[in-house]
């Protein structure tokens, strides 16, 4: 009670101090994010140069309004549903797998007795982070190439027949999932691992004094402590449900048309549609659409979470 009264007395001063703390980032956000945000109106305009006095602002101001016209191309294709299904489907699958696998990895790493080995594993898990999708695509191709791929050669040695990997759409959900997990698990694991490391150790002591087994300690101490991190990462992922990692879906399948059925996602669709037209209105519209959906989903998720567990919600 004393403490609270003390805090109240210094309320104004404290808030001022805290405001000075947020100031640097807030100023940066205004300059580099909020001011450029005015550019979003391009999504509703047919961007043309105002030849009398060209400048980005003049061009935007003097361009014609086209309402939602720039958004149309996202929905008029006969493939729209397929593209949306792939985008959302992969994201949902990977969000679920990602949480389960990376939390498990973090817990396992944490339980490995030899610190040296744990560190070595963890360092290795970070390498994919440095390897671009183009390089990954070389690697995948060295396995799947129709003439020289290792897996293809093995298949031929075994049965005399090989899968035509780059023209067969069925295996791609699996291949893409493996590639995605391979690349991102190290990153997510380290977040959870650091969160575990930050857990107040007295909680484990208390649990072990109460006679909790190791498994029980994980279940009753580690997981609840990770809850906040899991939920925050989930909320972030939900916001990106209409976005995909372009390099993964474009480079790894070698941009091969015959497998679009399982490799075409919104980002690649938009890229291919606008590849040559440089239509800044349509590309702005596409990302505005993705982000608006993401925003709405985050707001819903956040509201739901706030009802159940106000501590973990984003805001």
């Amino acid at each position: 009670m004393n403490a609270q009264r003390g805090v109240k007395r210094n309320n104004v001063k404290k808030n001022l101090m805290l405001l000075t703390m947020v100031a640097p980032v807030a100023i940066w956000l205004i300059l580099l994010r909020y001011i450029p945000m005015a550019g979003i109106v391009i999504a509703f305009k047919k961007y043309k140069v105002y030849t009398a006095d060209p400048s980005l602002i003049n061009n935007i101001v003097h361009s014609k309004w086209v309402g939602l016209g720039n958004f149309k191309f996202l929905f008029t294709s006969s493939d729209t549903l397929l593209v949306l299904r792939n985008t959302v489907g992969y994201n949902l699958l990977w969000i679920a797998l990602g949480v389960v696998i990376s939390v498990s990895f973090a817990i396992m790493l944490n339980e490995i007795t030899s610190r040296f080995v744990a560190k070595t594993y963890q360092t290795m898990m970070f390498f994919p982070f440095f390897i671009s999708w183009v390089v990954v695509s070389y690697f995948v191709m060295s396995l799947l190439d129709p003439t020289s791929g290792l897996i293809v050669k093995q298949q031929i040695a075994n049965s005399g027949e090989a899968t035509n990997w780059y023209h067969e759409y069925k295996p791609w959900p699996v291949i893409l999932t493996i590639c995605n997990l391979w690349k991102n698990m190290g990153y997510q694991t380290i977040l959870y691992l650091a969160a575990i490391t930050g857990i107040d150790k007295s909680q484990y002591e208390a649990a072990s004094i109460d006679g909790a087994s190791k498994a029980q300690q994980i279940w009753y101490v580690t997981i609840p402590n990770l809850r906040k991190m899991i939920i925050i990462l989930l909320i972030m992922d939900v916001g990106k449900i209409f976005n995909s990692d372009f390099g993964l879906f474009f480079s790894v399948p070698q941009n091969s048309g015959t497998i679009f059925r399982t490799t075409q996602v919104l980002d690649t669709y938009v890229y291919r549609a606008l590849m040559n037209s440089q239509n800044i209105g349509m590309s702005t519209a596409a990302s505005l659409f993705q982000n608006t959906v993401g925003f709405i989903l985050i707001m819903i998720t956040n509201t739901v979470i706030r009802r159940i567990d106000p501590e973990s919600s984003l805001f």
Partner: peptide, 24 residues
């Protein structure tokens, strides 16, 4: 025909090259 063009570019990317190289 901008909207059609975007969709058609995707369709062509799906079929054109494999047909022209005999892969399908």
């Amino acid at each position: 025909v901008e909207n059609e063009f975007g969709a058609l570019a995707n369709v062509a990317a799906e079929y054109f090259l494999p047909l022209c190289t005999g892969a399908v």
